[in-house]
Every structure is written in C-alpha cells, then in structure tokens.
Design a protein around this nucleic acid. Structure first.
Lengths: 226, 226
DNA sequence: ATTTTCAAAATATCAGATAATTTGATTAAT
DNA sequence: ATTAATCAAATTATCTGATATTTTGAAAAT
C-alpha cells in the first residue's frame, strides 16, 4: 500500500489513474498552490466524471494536498514558510527514526537495494551537474527512491507510509521552488550511502538533518514561497 | 483543521455528518475490523446517497481506516498485532517529540488547558474506577483531549494532525479490546500532568512510553486482537 | 471433493436533475 | 469614489437512475 507518485501499481481503474495524474500534478508543481479545481475543467483535463473526480478530490483532501472549504469546492493546498518548516521537521523525525531501525535490521538484500538506488541517483546527478536540467522530475523520483530504499528495512509499514506522505509534501516545495542544489545534495547522498553500509545511524541522522535543512533554506532563498 | 472524532466542528453538510458518524463508528469499534461496507446498507444506515458515501469511503481509505481492494468494494481496515505495535511506536515517537516542543513553548494559557483537561479526565476516571463502565466512550474522549492538550503548544499543526491520526488508530485498538486499566492509566495521567507543570519533558516521554506500551500489552492480553 | 458454469448481487463509472451557495458584475447609497 | 445592496450566472453538494464490468455463491459436472 505504500505506493506513491514514484512507484505506483498499474492504474487498474479509471478513478485510480486520474487520481495518480492529479496527485502527481500537484506534487510536481504543475498544479500550483491555491489553484481552483473546478469540476467541469477537471472533467475535460483528466477524463473522468464528476462523481469520480469528487472521490479523488476527497482523497487528496484527506492527504492535505487539496483543501475543501465549505461549499466552495476544492483547490490545491496553499504553501507557507511555516508549513515548509513543519514538514521538514517532521521528515527529519520520521526519516531519522526509520534510518535507525533500518540500519539495525537491514540485511544484504537491503544493502543491494540501497546501492542500486544510489547508483541511479548518482548517475542522474552527474547529468544534472552538467547543466542538463531536463530531467528534474526523474531526478526527484530517484531521490525519493533512494531515501525510500534507505528506510525500507525499518520494519514498519506505518512508518514508511507516514514518511512517504510527508516526503511528498516536502517534494512539492522543492518542485515549486525549482530548487536544484545538485552538488551539495549529491555529496550528502553519497555520505548517506556510506553511513548505510557502515551502519552508522547516528551520523546518518546528522547528515539527513543537514540535508533536509539545506533543502529548506535553499527553497526559501528562491523567494517562491511566501 | 486538526479536527477529529473528539472535537468536531458542527457538521454543516450531509456528507460531513455522515463522515463523522462512520468514522466514529469505526474508531469506537461499532463497525468491526473486516466488516464489509456495502453501499446499499450504508445508505439506509447513514442516510446519504451512494455518491456521497463513496466520497466518504474514499476519504477513510486515505486515512487507512477503510481498505478498498480493486473492485471489491470497501471494508473496515483489519487489525493485527504487528500493526498495533507499529502504531504504538509511532505514537510514542510523535507524541514524545510534541511533548518536548510543547513543554518548551507552553505558556500559562496552555497550562490552564492542560489542568482543565486533566481535571475532566481524572473525574471520569474516578467514576470508572468505581465500576461504572457506562461512559467508556466519554472517558476515551477525555483521554484524547488530555493528550491533545499536552501537545497543543508544540507549534506544529502538521505534528498535531499526524499525531491525531495515529492516536485514533491506537484508540480503535483500545476500544476493540475493550481494555480498561483505569487505575494504572489514571496514575500515569497524573504523572504526565505533574511533568507538564514542571516542564520535565524527559520524564514525560518516559511516562508516555510506559503508558502506551502498557496499553498495548493490556490490549493484547484480552486476546481480541490477532 | 474439486472444478466449472452461470445467474444474482455489488461495484465503478457515468449523465443528468435539483436545491442551495458562491461569485461577479451591476446598481444603488453613502 | 468608495462602500453597500441586488441579482443573474456559475458552481457546488447531493440524489436518482442507468450501464458495463466484476465478484460472489450456489448448482452442476467432473
């Protein structure tokens, strides 16, 4: 069930695929904060009926990616500096704990997944470093998958799910701020890999905290978030 | 927005009130785990149309209180020992962090809220201790409100929301197990109040951990969870 | 006792209708 | 020229009912 924008099961039903499209459009900033989500419009944009769309919007409302005020319909959740800071803090808390547990329980299978995920991410980061900015989304997907791989042995589906939900909200801010700070982030990712292989959870947490805090400050410096 | 089964805004719309009823029926164990939620049945039970009910079920699905498998409709989320343990651990993590922050930031206003909430809870616990088991739900509501009051000054809506979501899942297990361990819990609540007034976050976390762990073991001992 | 077959039940999705609410623009009042 | 009152159009929440697809459970066949 811990599916997300990044690793999704084949969308079987109409509603499911429209859900994934809309969610991804919000997380990747193609639907901007505050954007009114009028049903008629969505109908043509996502090819689903009003009833189905309302089901989807209700789901996204639960996830706090969409707000629904009274009978005024739906809109993409707004952003704020305070909210970004809260999300970042929560990510540090959840991911930090998950890292500890995962490092403790991770076996060789897990190490393999981590190394593989880091490899893909690092490759992508090389390209990005050379100015090729055409794969920002793909890059973020690999970023997500790397962090997810790191905690994948934590043993708690609850923790993984909650982390994924928070991570996506964090990601939305990064996409909105279009913030690329490739080199620094890449180094931090390499450090995390090192920590994982050495099972040094304490240092991993320290790196993670820096990683997330850096992302926040960088995003804020772009001035796109108010 | 951090509304819940315990402090809800007046249900303005039809869908909203049906949502609250169904959610509360799940959390308080009136709808048991695994129960099939057939639309026609819900229609008569909660007085809402299929479309509205589907919106509600989709919301509850996001909240992981309901599962929706393929085209097989909806049912109340199952329970398991592993899931209970994960929930408890997450509650300890979130509530512990929130306590620390709340204790640091709490002012006199906050102290008042905490004292008031504890008073109501303690009174209720007195009654329960005398064998009056008719207010179990009310008791749990006060329990919720006390813990909520303790963390209410933590300064993070995100944290409060996430905690509330986890708390309600924890609560569902308590209700399903019908576990009343009044005296012990009451003492722990009193201890927490003490810690709050002394701003002793470390000890509060220690008490909380014991509190939650105790609840889990007690619930498991009833044998109602498999 | 399985497996196959098939009708009834239930679901996902849609279109269209109604009442209530919100929105924006126009008009009136200060 | 702002502010306030007014009103039609747009939008919403909700319901009913229809269709195609899936799932379920029982009867038939192996």
């Amino acid at each position: 069930m811990s599916d997300d924008v990044h690793v999704m099961p084949p969308p079987s039903t109409v509603g499911e695929s429209a859900y994934q499209k809309i969610r991804s459009d919000i997380v990747f900033g193609r639907l901007l904060p505050g954007k009114k989500l009028k049903l008629e419009r969505l109908k043509t944009d996502y090819g689903a009926s009003v009833s189905t769309l309302r089901e989807i919007l209700n789901r996204l409302h639960s996830e706090r990616l969409v707000v629904a005020e009274g009978q005024k319909g739906f809109e993409v959740a707004p952003v704020s500096i305070a909210n970004l800071r809260e999300i970042a803090a929560l990510r540090q808390l959840l991911e930090g704990r998950a890292l500890e547990q995962s490092f403790r329980a991770g076996d060789m299978e897990w190490e393999g997944r981590v190394v593989a995920a880091h490899h893909r991410l690092a490759r992508m980061e090389e390209r990005m470093a050379q100015g090729d900015r055409s794969h920002t989304e793909g890059w973020k997907r690999y970023d997500w998958q790397f962090h997810q791989a790191l905690i994948s042995a934590c043993g708690s589906k609850m923790l993984i799910d909650n982390h994924a939900a928070v991570f996506d909200k964090y990601l939305r801010y990064q996409m909105i701020a279009l913030s690329y700070r490739g080199d620094i982030a890449a180094n931090e990712h390499a450090e995390l890999l090192e920590c994982a292989l050495e099972r040094d959870a304490a240092r991993a947490c320290e790196v993670l905290t820096r990683h997330v805090a850096g992302g926040v400050e960088h995003a804020l410096r772009t001035g796109t978030i108010s």
